[in-house]
């Protein structure tokens, strides 16, 4: 095989995957097992998540993708019966280690949920709450700046700048979800976890959030769980396919959706009985 034929085999990248080159590892999971009581939910998962890339986790319901996502900011700590084994390193430090404070970790690793869940407070306070409790703003001006910056980053500023004191719950579903993303951004996270962020949104609101995800990856590392394979294909550079608690296949999104290596991945993404 000479260079020319190699170039032919490697297809030109599409716009959304232009920044597809390998990036340093932000989060490295090795041999992660998760148990809920006696039931094992994840089996020996090893997965590297690259910085400034969008990694999507796909798979049928109950495959463990959300469980894995929740390991990354120790959300599983809140579940009494849940036990996590193996190691997950963030910038080389074990996030289950004693030196890591889960509250600080969750500021570094923000999360956006399936259903928009703004606080029953004003739009302004929704964003300002995090920076306040983490002591990130010395005065009102700084806080104002953080609120404006976060809303701008979430593409919501123009729509809400004249009604910052109205309740966040009065916004439309799509706006509420972007408000939650702005709220996650406000505490300057390094990683943003998204658990089916668009499943409650209409296609236009979904497109806005996807566009936002694409922009946010310049500054953040994003891990998204989605049931929509088209969404995974559209927004992510890496895709991991989970099935029954196993990581079946992990690779470049373009490869997973055009030539998956594993029969089970193929069956799932093409809509066959897996």
């Amino acid at each position: 095989m000479n260079d020319t034929s190699a170039a032919l085999v490697r297809p030109p990248k599409m716009e959304q995957a232009v920044n597809d080159e390998f990036s340093p590892i932000k989060i490295s999971a090795s041999n992660v097992d998760v148990f809920y009581g006696d039931k094992q939910a994840l089996n020996n998962i090893s997965l590297d998540i690259e910085k400034n890339r969008v990694t999507s986790l796909i798979g049928p319901s109950g495959c463990g993708k959300s469980t894995f996502l929740r390991c990354i900011n120790r959300m599983n700590d809140t579940i009494e019966t849940c036990r996590v084994e193996g190691s997950i390193l963030i910038d080389g430090t074990d996030l289950n280690g004693t030196e890591i404070d889960p509250v600080e970790l969750r500021a570094r690793v923000g999360m956006v949920f399936q259903k928009p869940n703004p606080f029953p407070k004003s739009i302004y306070d929704n964003i300002a709450y995090g920076p306040k409790i983490h002591g990130m703003a010395a005065d009102k001006d700084t806080l104002d700046q953080i609120v404006q910056y976060s809303l701008e980053r979430a593409g919501l500023w123009q729509e809400v700048k004249d009604r910052l004191n109205e309740p966040g719950t009065g916004l439309s579903g799509g706006q509420q979800q972007r408000l939650c993303i702005a709220r996650a951004i406000a505490v300057s996270p390094e990683v943003i976890l998204m658990d089916e962020p668009c499943s409650a949104l209409d296609p236009i609101a979904t497109a806005r959030v996807e566009e936002l995800i694409d922009e946010l990856k310049q500054n953040y590392t994003i891990v998204i769980v989605t049931h929509s394979m088209q969404q995974a294909a559209r927004v992510s550079q890496r895709t991991a396919f989970f099935l029954l608690g196993d990581l079946v296949e992990f690779g470049d999104t373009a490869d997973i959706f055009t030539k998956p290596q594993d029969e089970r991945t193929q069956s799932y993404i093409t809509g066959r009985i897996g």
Partner: peptide, 9 residues
């Protein structure tokens, strides 16, 4: 149908 993987091919 938005075919994927082998179907797309």
């Amino acid at each position: 149908r938005q075919p994927m993987a082998d179907d797309l091919r």
